[in-house]
C-alpha cells in the first residue's frame, strides 16, 4: 500500500473550479483558524511555562512579562528525571536495534519455515495492551530483581518497540537488490559479513528512522515506568509530570516548563533527522 500512496504525484489536479484570488485567501484564513484551534494547547503550554506563578486566575493569554522561574524550578526538580529518560531511551534504542536489525534483514531476505508465522506474531503484538505486559512483567521482574532498575525499563521498553522496528526496517530491506549481497557472498564473505558490510550501510536511512521511532516511543512511555517502578530510584520525566498533576497543582508554570522540556528531544530529533526519515519512510516504496 505504501507503494501507491507514496508514489502518487504530490500535486493532484483537483476537480477544477475557478477560484478567485480572494476565495483562495479565504481558504488560507480558514486553514489558519483550524490550525489555531488544533495547536492552541501547544501554545498554552509554552505561554504558561513563561509566566510567574501561573495559577488561580493569574495566567494571561500572552506572557507579557516572561520569566524563566518555571524553567528554573523545573530544572531543579526534574533534571534527574530528564537524565533518567535519556538513559532509558538511548538504552532502548541500542537494545532494539541489536535485536531488530538482523531480524528485519533475515525476514526480508530468507524464506524459511516459520518466517511468515513470525511476521503474523509481530503484527499481533501490536494489538496486545501494554497493561497486560506490565501485569505479568511485574511479577517476573520482582523475581529477578529488575524492578526499579534502568535495565528493567530498557528491556520492557525495547519489547514494545522491537516488533514495529522489525516491520519498518524489513519493508526497506526487501528493496535491497539481492545481487548486491550475492556479489559479496561470492567473494567468500558469509551471510553475517555481508550483513555488516553491505546491508547495514545501505539501510542507514531505515535504521535511523527505526531508531528515531524507538527513541520517541521509549521517551514518551508512561505506563511501563509507572508499573515497573515503585520507588524514586529510577524515574523518567513522564512520571515526573504525572506526579505533578496527580496532586492539586497550584503553580502550573513548572509543570508546563517540564512539559516543554519533555517535548524538546522530539522536536530536536525531528529537525535533525528529517532527511533520514523522509528517505527511510519512502524506502519501502522505492523498488
Amino acid at each position: 500500500m505504501t507503494t501507491t500512496v507514496q508514489a502518487a504525484p504530490s500535486h493532484v489536479a483537483l476537480p477544477r473550479r475557478h477560484r478567485s484570488h480572494a476565495g483562495s485567501l479565504g481558504m488560507t484564513a480558514l486553514g489558519v483558524l483550524f490550525l489555531a484551534v488544533m495547536i492552541f494547547p501547544v501554545y498554552w503550554m509554552v505561554n504558561t511555562s513563561l509566566q510567574a506563578n501561573a495559577g488561580a486566575a493569574t495566567a494571561t493569554w500572552f506572557p507579557f512579562q516572561p520569566t524563566f522561574e518555571g524553567y528554573i524550578a523545573a530544572f531543579q526538580q526534574q533534571i534527574q528525571n530528564f537524565l533518567s529518560s535519556m538513559v532509558i531511551s538511548l538504552g532502548t534504542v541500542v537494545v532494539t536495534l541489536l535485536f531488530a536489525t538482523p531480524a528485519a534483514y533475515g525476514l526480508a531476505r530468507f524464506r524459511m519455515r516459520g518466517t511468515r508465522a513470525f511476521l503474523l506474531v509481530l503484527l499481533v503484538t501490536q494489538m496486545i495492551p501494554t497493561i497486560v505486559i506490565a501485569n505479568a512483567l511485574y511479577t517476573l521482574f520482582n523475581d529477578v530483581n529488575l524492578l526499579n532498575t534502568y535495565w528493567g525499563l530498557i528491556l520492557a521498553d525495547s519489547a514494545a518497540q522491537i516488533p514495529f522496528s522489525i516491520l519498518l526496517m524489513r519493508a526497506f530491506m526487501e528493496s535491497i537488490p539481492p545481487s548486491l549481497v550475492e556479489a559479496a557472498l561470492v567473494d567468500r564473505a558469509n551471510n553475517f559479513r555481508a550483513f555488516i558490510s553491505i546491508v547495514i550501510p545501505i539501510s542507514r536511512n531505515a535504521i535511523v528512522t527505526a531508531a528515531l521511532f524507538t527513541f520517541l516511543g521509549a521517551w514518551g512511555d508512561f505506563l511501563i515506568a509507572l508499573t515497573l517502578t515503585s520507588t524514586t530510584a529510577v524515574r523518567p520525566i513522564t512520571l515526573g509530570i504525572y506526579n505533578y498533576i496527580g496532586s492539586n497543582v497550584t503553580d502550573w508554570a513548572p509543570v508546563m516548563a517540564t512539559a516543554v522540556l519533555a517535548s524538546l528531544p522530539a522536536a530536536v530529533l525531528l529537525v535533525v533527522a528529517q532527511k533520514y526519515i523522509a528517505a527511510g519512510a519512502l524506502g519501502g516504496a522505492v523498488k
Binding site: 503550554m45 521517551w219 519533555a262 522530539a266
Partner: peptide
Amino acid sequence: LLLPWLLPLIASSAVWKW
C-alpha cells in the same frame, strides 16, 4: 498540524488538565 505529536502523551494530559 503535526506539532501536537511532539508532546509525550502524559505532557498532553498535563496541558489539557490545565
